[in-house]
């Protein structure tokens, strides 16, 4: 249970898809002009990651990794097909995205209408392939954890795109230097947010060490909690501000 919780928070905050490893930046920059579209794309990313990461975990476990084919018989123990992982992962993702699109269209037309345009985009979103590749590189030990990893890194991506979309909606009313307008300022804001997210690194000890939650002093924790509260407050302010403007 603890390892689930640890992985969950780690993938959302510390190894955030956008701020720590820059995955899915293209759609992050292209689709973050409005909060409503950002929410649609973010939800689709969570959904597809939750499906493809566990699927690719099974593929990796029983087909690709060194000695994975041993379940066919002892003479297959020496095969290592991991060089095929790129092509199989991307094929799984492309197929799953198509399949998800068909299923969603059939059973939930309203969800399809809100996600519809984003689903095909997602097949080439680096965050999706990145999720599977990191799952393989970090050797996630069980199917449950793989599902957890998919969902939580999706949530991390969702949070990132939601935050930048809210900021971009607001920054339209600010006087940004002309050459920085649009893309430039978005990059710099993302960079600053990334630095902010780096501070979550204090939540856990380093990557390779065993996590020791007791080591985190309470002082550190309260500071982090304050930071989170501040962020939430800032977001709420932004939302209410937008509502006022919309009215």
């Amino acid at each position: 249970m603890l390892e689930h919780l640890e992985l969950f928070f780690k993938s959302i905050f510390i190894d955030n898809m956008v701020f720590a490893v820059f995955l899915g930046m293209c759609s992050y920059l292209a689709v973050s002009k409005k909060v409503s579209t950002a929410v649609g794309l973010g939800a689709a990313v969570i959904f597809v990651l939750a499906v493809t990461v566990p699927l690719n975990w099974l593929l990796d476990q029983y087909l690709l990794r060194d000695g994975a084919l041993v379940w066919l018989g002892p003479e297959y123990a020496d095969y290592n097909l991991s060089f095929l992982s790129f092509i199989l992962f991307i094929a799984t993702i492309a197929t799953m995205v198509q399949l998800v699109e068909i299923v969603v269209e059939k059973f939930s037309p309203s969800l399809y209408n809100s996600l519809g345009i984003f689903l095909p985009l997602i097949a080439v979103n680096c965050a999706i392939l990145g999720g599977s590749l990191f799952m393989q590189a970090r050797e996630i030990p069980s199917l449950g954890l793989a599902l957890n990893y998919g969902v939580s890194s999706g949530i991390g991506w969702f949070l990132a795109i939601l935050a930048i979309a809210a900021i971009r909606e607001k920054i339209r009313y600010s006087n940004v230097p002309a050459p920085l307008r649009g893309l430039g300022i978005t990059f710099i804001i993302t960079g600053l947010m990334g630095i902010g997210f780096q501070s979550f690194g204090g939540m856990l000890t380093g990557d390779n060490e065993a996590p020791e939650p007791t080591e985190n002093t309470t002082a550190e924790k309260t500071i982090e909690e304050k930071e989170i509260k501040k962020e939430i407050e800032a977001k709420e302010k932004a939302v209410s501000y937008n509502e006022v403007i919309n009215k």
Partner: peptide, 19 residues
């Protein structure tokens, strides 16, 4: 060295180019 610096450097490149 930390990852977010790359974004800021690219932002500055965009700034210079567009100026």
């Amino acid at each position: 060295i930390i990852p977010p610096a790359a974004l800021i450097v690219v932002g500055i490149i965009i700034w210079v180019q567009r100026s």
